[in-house]
């Protein structure tokens, strides 16, 4: 894991360390099992067509979970996630599998973010962030925000 980040290290405009993800049909199967979301929208071609999305789409909640990882990776073990929100604006379609382990070539998604502000509230050193998942074309399909509390060097 990366070194612990402190409140004093961050300022508005700073980039959150990006996180790359590749959604595959395999990952969607694992997610369905791990989350218990068995909506056929995410694995049945005909059902997805009838729902108006064309083909099985990546679970919104999986993209939200990626954004959770983006934040927990960045804030480290001493940081605390206070709020996380996102909107499922654009559909994302997983890569299909070529072998048992390897997906076909295709899109890579990036979870990204930047610091929009920081303030101290009571004993909490809070940092506000804008976060999003970006598809292979650079479109933000899943914009959101996060509020985190970071440790302060002053409080050591």
């Amino acid at each position: 894991m990366a070194e612990q980040i402190y409140y004093e290290d961050v300022q508005a405009g700073m980039e959150i360390t990006p996180l790359a993800k590749i959604a595959t049909s395999l990952m969607l199967v694992k997610w369905a099992g791990a989350s218990g979301d068995f909506n056929p929208l995410h694995y049945e071609d005909d059902f997805a067509k009838a729902m108006g999305v064309g083909a099985p789409i990546v679970h919104g909640a999986l993209k939200r979970a990626w954004l959770g990882q983006l934040m927990t990776d960045w804030i480290g073990e001493e940081g605390r996630l206070k709020k996380l929100s996102c909107q499922y604006r654009g559909m994302d379609y997983p890569r299909k599998m070529k072998t048992m382990e390897e997906p076909h070539d295709g899109e890579t998604w990036w979870c990204k973010g930047k610091v929009t502000g920081k303030h101290v509230d009571g004993g909490d050193h809070l940092v506000e962030c804008e976060i999003w998942v970006e598809n292979g074309k650079g479109e933000r399909t899943t914009p959101g925000s996060a509020l985190v509390a970071l440790p302060s060097r002053g409080a050591l």
């Binding site: 989350s35 979301d37 206070k82 996380l84 929100s85 909107q87 499922y88």
Partner: peptide, 30 residues
């Protein structure tokens, strides 16, 4: 989230809501 959502999908459709249903977003406060 998933289980309640499935039940909610079902409830909303049975109560006369439109048949095509999608998750639009979520906000967590920890």
């Amino acid at each position: 989230e998933a289980r309640a959502k499935e039940k909610l999908f079902d409830t909303l459709i049975k109560a006369g809501g439109p048949p095509r249903i999608l998750d639009a977003g979520v906000e967590f406060e920890f």
